[in-house]
Amino acid sequence: MYVMTIDQRGSSTDIDRVPEFLEGLKPFSSARFERSVGDEVQGVLDEPAAVVDVALHALRSGLWYVGIGVGPVNLPSPASPREGSGAAFVAARQAVDRAKAAAGHVPLAVVSGGVQRGLPASAGGVAGNRNAAGRDAGVRACANAEAVLRLIGRLVRERTEAQWRVVDALRAKNERDPGRHGLQKQVARELGISDQSVSRAILRSGWQEEWAARPAAEMLLATAHGLIPDTVSPDASNRGER
């Protein structure tokens, strides 16, 4: 599973933006997100594409730290993310703390919270070596997913309002190919701007690069998820808390 812990930046000197943020998440994922504590929200997702959507939406405004934990969650699944536990919750807490410490970088981190599927963490000998190799592979996959998401996140964070108007109009048409014949002309007419302005906005916004890179981030998150168990037995001892 993927646990996302998202914390508001500069909340001590800003208004509470959690209610507006939660409302804005609804188009991006069917997963339940809710305020976990203070100015922080949390949700549990099972699809890497939804994780990428939510992460980039959060990064767009520059107002949030994004932590993504990949790993097992304890069963039975609770009705509220606030009541969840498991290694993915702990990893998400570590991830958001790392995001806060990423001075000068896109404030996002991905942390692995599991071990290789089918091998206990305490295994020794050959099994222990295989276990360590699987764990390391999961860590690498998370690090690679983080790197790709930060690159895409920088494109998202640096877009101007004018570029976002074009990008949002393109996305509203559910099109991942802004170069498709006729689409740019439709957007230009809707926005009352020239075809050339739309073309420049697409080029300078990195829209095509974003959608070319999203599958790579999704694949790396899925790879990390595939190296670790989906669930573990009930155990309330590993909660991700402040």
Rank of each mutant, 00 (worst) to 15 (best):
L108R: 07
V198N: 07
S29Y: 03
L108I: 13
V70G: 00
A213C: 09
G24K: 05
R9S: 11
V156C: 04
H181I: 10
R9Y: 12
G128E: 08
T160E: 05
S29T: 15
A121Y: 10
H181Y: 09
A58D: 01
A169M: 02
P78T: 12
G179M: 14
V110P: 00
R117T: 15
L56I: 02
D14K: 15
Q186G: 02
L183D: 04
G206F: 03
S80E: 05
P72W: 08
V66A: 03
R242V: 08
D235T: 01
E146G: 05
T5V: 11
A217W: 07
A49G: 11
S197K: 09
S122M: 09
P76T: 12
P120H: 13
E209R: 14
A145E: 02
V148S: 04
P19K: 06
P234F: 10
A91C: 05
A133I: 11
G67S: 06
A87H: 13
G206P: 02
A212K: 13
E158R: 14
E161S: 12
V51L: 03
E175N: 14
V198S: 03
G114Y: 09
E47D: 14
A222K: 15
R135P: 01
E175H: 10
G86L: 04
V73H: 07
A133V: 13
W207P: 00
A127W: 11
N131K: 14
V37W: 10
D14T: 14
W64Q: 02
D235E: 05
E241I: 13
A143H: 04
V51I: 04
A101D: 15
D16M: 11
R204G: 05
V41K: 08
A99Y: 01
T5K: 09
L59R: 01
T223D: 15
L59Q: 00
D46M: 12
L155W: 07
G153Q: 00
R17I: 05
L59K: 05
D136L: 14
S61E: 10
D7H: 08
R140Q: 14
L155I: 01
E218C: 12
A147S: 10
A101Q: 15
M4Y: 00
R159D: 02
N238I: 05
R165K: 12
E20C: 03
L221C: 11
D16G: 07
G62F: 06
T160F: 05
Q116F: 09
A132G: 07
E23S: 07
S11R: 13
G134H: 07
R9T: 07
V51N: 01
L203I: 09
F89A: 00
S237C: 00
P27S: 00
S29C: 06
P107A: 06
G153H: 01
R35N: 06
R171I: 11
Q116P: 02
S199Y: 08
R60P: 00
G69H: 03
